[in-house]
Design a protein around this nucleic acid. Structure first.
Lengths: 215, 215
DNA sequence: TAGATTGTTAATCGATTAACAATC
DNA sequence: TAGATTGTTAATCGATTAACAATC
């Protein structure tokens, strides 16, 4: 793809949705020790057609080589760059309940290059604890922490009622992205991104499919 | 919409993806005590255009009324039916770790009409425990339980390595749908549905958006 | 070189929006 | 009845697939 200087490049949302899946399977292939792969084979693995895969990747650069295919490690690193994954820890989690702890303990995160900087909770019994190497801090100190440590992504795993207020506070302190697990659609100002993880919706989709299949 | 007898009706995947969101907001509106709503207003709430909303709903029936709009409770019940939500408990969860416990304790599930029948784990320390009214049982008894209680949906919250084998066992015993939280794409035979909940992918999408906004 | 496979354009398909007659 | 709002068809837009020249 040829990019003209100064031109706005808009990536189709359909492409953005597929990138993380590519990233996950590349990570898996690296662990398996595979070196290269063709768009045909990789497409089969991730469940998209070969031309679609090539077109998706070409939004970000020409990572392949004719007659050879794609070098897996190179492609993985390129996609990591594209998605802004850096070893530098710039992420916090708020709400150390069951779900919060599950995320703190997630090996999949770490494996994919994500590192949590700290966790926060309102419960004094939890404050001070260490979980998987992450210190739980008092929620009242979160604004300072965000400012001082240049945090730009926050994970919200607090109850529904607390989520929006908390989001506002963190955004005021400088957070640019929120990964929200509370069952509300958070409202955020322009320039801030939200990814709402409404778990129950996945269950409903499954239920629909099961019912639909029976017919 | 007029349906002809015997004709196969295929619901576009784009529509299926939006249904759970409609359901969630209807649930919220009921709790607020709102009685009726127009496609224009409801579209604004759920973030789709009014014609799209009407078209989506009309795949399943004509639930609105000209000059009036939609009765919220009626629409909620219709969509619940469409998605196969029944009070009758026909769902089990396997893997009572942090994530499993988070789901067992979820108030959002119950509120939306979903009920768990039982939970299973391999760890003898957990077996026998009651969590939020749900009994934790020995994983070795799961096939029998599925057969005897006519279970058709299973939630998998076990480690990656155990997920596929477990899925196979449960499908053999009669499970028709799997909601999978392990970071693998489960392979299932035709007639069985899977909804893969790859949490890390949501975080990557967020990371991409944050990075993309900075430019 | 010959074979393989990419990058990219053009054609097709599906999903969204615009528009309006039907009707409560 | 007049006003509001649905259900539905036709037009537009975006995303996917097919095809192939470029090239390693």
């Amino acid at each position: 793809m040829i990019r003209k200087e100064g031109e706005e490049i808009v990536i189709p949302t359909a492409v953005i949705k597929r990138l993380p899946k590519y990233h996950r399977h590349l990570s898996k292939l690296i662990r398996k020790g595979v070196e290269k792969i063709s768009s045909k084979d990789f497409g089969q693995i991730v469940g998209v057609s070969a031309p679609q895969l090539r077109q998706d990747l070409n939004h970000f650069g020409n990572f392949g080589q004719q007659g050879y295919g794609y070098n897996i490690e190179k492609l993985y690193n390129e996609l990591s760059k594209v998605m802004g994954i850096e070893k530098k820890s710039n992420m916090v989690l708020v709400g150390v309940g069951n779900l919060g702890q599950a995320l703190i303990n997630s090996t999949d995160f770490k494996r994919r290059g994500f590192y949590l900087s700290a966790a926060f909770d309102i419960n004094p019994r939890l404050v001070g604890m260490m979980i998987n190497g992450i210190k739980v801090r008092d929620i009242e100190t979160i604004e300072n922490y965000i400012r001082e440590n240049d945090i730009n992504i926050a994970i919200i795993t607090v109850p529904e009622e607390a989520a929006q207020k908390l989001a506002d506070r963190m955004i005021d302190a400088g957070v640019k992205g929120i990964w929200n697990f509370a069952p509300v659609d958070l409202k955020v100002p322009k320039g801030v991104s939200v990814e709402n993880e409404h778990l129950t919706e996945g269950l409903l989709r499954l239920s629909f499919k099961v019912k639909d299949d029976k017919k």
